[in-house]
Simulated assay, not measured.
Amino acid sequence: MMPITEKDPVITLGRNTLIWGIAGYATLLPAMLPNDQLTSFVDAFGASLDSRARLEAGMRATLRANQKRNLPSI
């Protein structure tokens, strides 16, 4: 489970940097949370990602038009 894995040091460092950079160093990391809070965290994280993906999918045509206009052809 990506939010709490400690096996990959790159993922661990990146995740911790993002969490602490946004919420501050006093924030508990996901692996430090009790099981009931971790479940709530993972559910909310998944819902947030799903919401973002749906929003971006709805804006696909606009995003592609902006990309074509703002990025040079390769």
Results as ranks from 00 to 15, higher is better:
9 P>T: 06
1 M>A: 12
31 A>T: 10
23 A>T: 04
26 A>S: 10
49 L>G: 15
38 L>H: 05
65 A>Q: 15
1 M>C: 05
68 K>R: 00
53 A>S: 15
3 P>L: 13
33 L>H: 03
4 I>R: 09
34 P>L: 00
7 K>E: 12
74 I>Q: 10
25 Y>S: 11
28 L>F: 07
59 M>P: 06
25 Y>L: 00
4 I>K: 02
9 P>C: 02
2 M>S: 15
46 G>V: 13
20 W>D: 01
29 L>M: 03
46 G>H: 10
5 T>F: 03
27 T>Y: 11
3 P>K: 00
11 I>E: 05
57 A>T: 12
14 G>T: 04
41 F>K: 03
74 I>Y: 09
35 N>P: 14
24 G>Y: 03
12 T>D: 05
43 D>K: 09
12 T>W: 00
66 N>Q: 09
62 T>D: 08
33 L>G: 06
57 A>R: 15
47 A>W: 05
26 A>H: 01
25 Y>T: 08
69 R>S: 05
65 A>Y: 00
60 R>G: 12
42 V>P: 06
63 L>K: 12
39 T>N: 11
14 G>C: 05
20 W>Y: 15
33 L>R: 09
4 I>A: 13
16 N>S: 04
45 F>E: 12
70 N>M: 09
48 S>Q: 15
13 L>G: 11
61 A>E: 10
62 T>Y: 08
53 A>E: 14
29 L>D: 00
21 G>Y: 02
33 L>N: 04
14 G>Y: 03
74 I>S: 01
18 L>W: 11
73 S>H: 08
15 R>T: 00
14 G>W: 02
30 P>E: 13
43 D>V: 09
42 V>W: 05
27 T>C: 03
19 I>W: 02
13 L>D: 15
43 D>T: 14
27 T>D: 05
64 R>N: 02
35 N>S: 14
73 S>Q: 01
40 S>Y: 08
21 G>I: 03
52 R>Q: 02
39 T>G: 09
36 D>W: 07
17 T>G: 01
69 R>M: 11
16 N>G: 02
5 T>E: 15
2 M>I: 08
33 L>S: 03
51 S>R: 09
33 L>Q: 07
66 N>C: 05
61 A>T: 11
24 G>P: 00
22 I>C: 04
17 T>A: 13
52 R>T: 15
70 N>P: 02
45 F>D: 12
57 A>S: 14
2 M>E: 14
55 L>W: 12
14 G>K: 06
7 K>N: 15
71 L>S: 13
72 P>V: 05
59 M>H: 07
17 T>S: 11
56 E>K: 02
49 L>N: 09
12 T>H: 09
18 L>H: 06
66 N>H: 04
14 G>L: 02
44 A>G: 04
5 T>G: 10
9 P>D: 07
44 A>W: 00
